[in-house]
Design a protein around this nucleic acid. Sequence first.
DNA 1: ACCTGAACACCGTTCAAGT
DNA 2: ACCTGAACACCGTTCAAGT
Lengths: 194, 194
Amino acid sequence: MDSITDAAERLLQTTGSFTMPKLAKSLGVTASSLYNHISGREEIIELMRGRLLAQFPIEETTPGDWQDLVLSMLRLMRRAYCSVPALGPLLFTQTITHPAVISMYDRMATQFSEAGFADEELIPLISMLDSFAFGAALDHDAPHDVWEFPVAHDAEPSPLQRAIADNDPATRAERSFEYGCRLLIDGMRLQRER
Amino acid sequence: MDSITDAAERLLQTTGSFTMPKLAKSLGVTASSLYNHISGREEIIELMRGRLLAQFPIEETTPGDWQDLVLSMLRLMRRAYCSVPALGPLLFTQTITHPAVISMYDRMATQFSEAGFADEELIPLISMLDSFAFGAALDHDAPHDVWEFPVAHDAEPSPLQRAIADNDPATRAERSFEYGCRLLIDGMRLQRER
DNA sequence: ACCTGAACACCGTTCAAGT
DNA sequence: ACCTGAACACCGTTCAAGT
């Protein structure tokens, strides 16, 4: 059913997780009745992923602008990895055979090559971008408080403690990811100019 | 207790997961009896984290050289995450409370701050480095053939296909990681100069 | 066709009771 | 001091029974 996927997405967005009983309750129904419409929890996750990827087609980049391509690819990959947290590690440690995904990587490589990156850089470059997108995806599921300092009310706060105090936990992962994207693209630009 | 951490690590290495009942059973004891020695599941994970990082002492870095610190930190974090593959996702999704680990992050923040990075950049910066190190660690366990092209012997090979043909699978992850480190540090240098 | 309620096999954790 | 066994509040999933 489509409304189940809706409810699951809503639940994930509000509470950060979803369980079958809670999902059923939000639909005014019993957990067991969900199984009349879907095969199980995993199918719901798959449905959400499908919806997510359909939402973000990869065609939206400026032709010839490799920096634009990197940014949208990183965002796309992160979203994909985010959508199925438990499946992420599996995707990441399995040979990619899906033609559409292959052609996505191929397109990146081609554009990098045309932009002037050396052939022997292509694989390190793409692997590296992939690693970052994947790490950032898991970072998205990190707890709000990444660091918890031992209580010590005598000493003055360290730079990290001050930064934590000023930090908005709700947007930390997102900002860190975007910051990282910019840094990587800057680094790539520098590298391209030898 | 120390033997609990041992058993948990052993369980993770063999089965890829650990639960309190199974952990207890592997020690010939009941799940509830574990709570005489540790406060709960999270503490066991924290103990494993501490042990993991103690195993990989921080390299001697040149004092004041933030670029040197970034490089050795990235290498340290990656090796730590690599050492027990199944542990990575657990560590990454739990609040860090271990004092030694906290102080490691604190040291990075302090040095970045002294190097001239803005306070509001510290958390994105550190999160981003962490994401990359973690992603690179999981990339290390990726299959030798990351991409598998559909067979098509008529068309000429794409840049990615040529790059794959010239690629040494045994060192791909390592080279990609080092390449990424350089790119990130370059990006950081550019960012520091506004 | 769709829902319910009970049941099953799991979790992590608590606590009174034993030794 | 340490362990046990029962209990609690959760999971995801199955299935006979109802409408």
